[in-house]
Write a protein that binds this DNA or RNA. Structure first.
Length: 256
DNA sequence: CCAAATGTTTTCCC
DNA sequence: CGGGAAAACATTTG
């Protein structure tokens, strides 16, 4: 998906829907809970929030949770804040609309979740209390607590939304590259200084990528991930291997 | 035709 | 019950 950065971009773009009334909804029944349409139609939007990679739309009724899967995009009032997603189609095919929410009886839908691969989901009054610390709120202390006792590879642990919420495959590789940490390292083997550096990296690099436009704007951009050129930091050839079922790109030269 | 793709969820095994 | 690895999910694109 869209990682937490993309969802943050969409959250900001969706704030104009606050105060408006949901007058209709069209959904792919396979991606919403039973009774979704009946529960939300007629309610007013009271706030738009984000928890990790989940976009939360509070209403006078239930809170709608939008998960974007790998290829979901959000279109607000006919405008796509992110025109083209990496690794997804550049087209905007209406047949890929999974959740369409009409507001104030306007002809253009207030919100569209457009998702070719259909891995996205919508929820109602979802419990987000089990999510780990949000990527925007990571501190050395919180990160240390989250990593304690974890034997799995640090990269896999960073991708676990119950540990840190909002990091995806690209951002996880990116922060480990900046922090000089081998993604294969067991999470519990990181020392206090490494954890502090990793926490600082998350707090510094991600906002910078947010300003630049999202999780594809890092040093390990999709182009770099695909070509594996010499490491921009030390010239050592980047490596790409399979870790926890995902592609990990890293530099054996400076990530230890 | 084959492989791979910003992500969860489920299943099976310790 | 908890952690972890692998498979499942569904579809498009290069």
């Amino acid at each position: 998906m869209p990682e937490g950065l993309e969802v943050e971009i969409w959250r900001r773009a969706a704030t104009p829907i606050v105060g408006r009334t949901i007058t209709g909804a069209h959904v792919d029944r396979t991606v919403v809970p039973p009774g979704f349409v009946e529960s939300v139609v007629g309610e007013d939007v009271t706030a738009v929030r984000r928890a990790g990679k989940i976009l939360l739309i509070d209403t006078t009724g239930p809170t709608i949770g939008l998960h974007f899967g790998m290829t979901g995009r959000l279109v607000v009032d006919g405008i796509a804040p992110i025109e083209r997603l990496e690794y997804a189609s550049g087209r905007d095919d209406p047949s890929w609309d999974r959740v369409v929410i009409v507001g104030d009886d306007r002809p253009t839908p207030m919100l569209r979740l457009n998702d070719p691969r259909r891995l996205g989901r919508a929820s109602l009054d979802e419990d987000v209390g089990g999510l780990g610390v949000d990527f925007t709120a990571v501190t050395p202390r919180r990160l240390a607590a989250a990593l304690a006792g974890r034997r799995a590879a640090i990269k896999s642990v960073l991708l676990d939304q119950h540990v840190v919420a909002g990091l995806g495959n690209l951002c996880a590789d990116e922060v480990l590259w900046w922090a000089g940490i081998d993604p294969h390292r067991g999470a519990a083997t990181l020392g206090p200084e490494e954890i502090e550096l990793l926490a600082r990296t998350i707090r510094r690099r991600l906002p910078s990528m947010l300003r630049a436009g999202g999780s594809h704007t890092g040093t390990l951009s999709p182009a770099v991930r695909s070509a594996c050129p010499p490491c921009p930091r030390d010239g050592h050839p980047l490596r790409r291997d399979r870790l926890g079922g995902r592609t990990a790109v890293w530099c054996p030269g400076h990530q230890h």
